[in-house]
Write a protein that binds this DNA or RNA. Structure first.
Length: 298
DNA sequence: ATAGGCGCCTGCTGGC
DNA sequence: TGCCAGCAGGCGCCTA
């Protein structure tokens, strides 16, 4: 999917194009439906409403309406939310068309694989309840240091799995998990609870740094992603490990390796991202140690 | 608690 | 050339 940098780019593109304008009319165009489909009853509440803001929370796009309601979009793997002139040919897999007030432009939601969704919340409280129920973690740019250390220290999962968990931190996906771990020089299969304090801090800063840089490049376009104006991102040209299996590590020249972790393809440099920081050759002994520690703690 | 597998979808690539 | 398995930026659900 669009991960945080791509979603942020969409939001920044859409904001000036949508803020202050009215949603005149909404219609579903595709005979297929989205995972969370547009309900007819939402039309009455949304039609005629002015858009007060377009913001982001994790990978969710929030459109605030003047009546206090929210439209919430998730782009899934292939979602595109763009503002285009009405004359623009309708691309295949376009599911929703929002006519804007002056009749010259439309907000369109297109999603090839239909993993994306659209939701409606009548007020702020309903929206907050939704995020609370999802246990959505903090934004990566303001993760409290102690919270982060606690999250890692309390988890026996591998770092890759922890980074992908939206409850720990919101917005990181497969690409930026790999790129962040490379930036922090940490092996993706390391157990979270095995990290030293300095390593945990390094990872927290690495995630923010990588995401900021990706946002500055308008995110990464591998296949389907485009921003809110239809422009592609540029960060794919700066991937250091993601999708670069066999290619030389930009730091040391060693061939980038890949493996499967948390069900996802994972890329790393075996030289820059050593699994062990200290010389533990006996893995089983180390695992036992962590297990024992966990038992003592609980 | 956590890993692993599946399902949801369509489209593209690489191997045969 | 054609077919088919495998894979893809997400996520929720289930089982062991």
């Amino acid at each position: 999917m669009p991960e945080l940098p791509e979603v942020e780019t969409v939001v920044r593109d859409l904001r000036p194009r949508l803020r202050g304008r009215r949603l005149a009319h909404v219609r579903q165009t595709s005979r297929h439906t989205l995972r969370t489909r547009w309900l007819p009853s939402w039309n009455a509440v949304v039609a005629g409403q002015r858009i007060d803001g377009v913001t982001r929370r994790g990978k969710w796009i929030l459109v605030t309406l003047a009546n206090g309601a929210f439209l919430v979009f998730h782009l899934g793997m292939t979602g595109q939310l763009t503002v285009v002139p009405v004359a623009t040919p309708l691309a295949e897999h376009t599911h929703l068309i929002f006519d804007l007030d002056d009749g010259t432009q439309q907000l369109r939601f297109r999603d090839i694989r239909r993993f994306g969704s659209v939701r409606f919340y009548p007020n702020q409280q309903a929206l907050e309840d939704f995020f609370a129920a999802a246990h959505l973690g903090p934004e990566p740019f303001d993760v409290p240091a102690q919270y982060w250390r606690d999250c890692l220290h309390g988890s026996r999962r591998c770092l890759k799995a922890v980074l992908l968990d939206q409850r720990v931190v919101a917005g990181v996906g497969n690409i930026y998990a790999d790129e962040s771990l490379f930036e922090a020089r940490l092996h993706p299969a390391r157990r979270a609870c095995d990290l030293e304090k300095t390593e945990a801090d390094r990872l927290r800063r690495a995630v923010a740094k990588v995401l900021r840089r990706a946002i500055a490049r308008r995110g990464a376009s591998i296949r389907n992603y485009v921003g809110g104006s239809g422009l592609r991102g540029k960060y794919q040209n700066e991937f250091r490990v993601y999708g670069r299996t066999g290619a030389p590590c930009p730091r040391c020249g060693t061939a980038v390796e890949s493996l499967r972790l948390a069900g996802r393809s994972t890329h790393f440099c075996p030289m820059c991202q050593k699994h062990q920081t200290t010389d533990h050759t006996d893995k089983s002994k180390k695992q036992f140690g962590s297990k024992k520690l966990l038992r003592l703690r609980s």
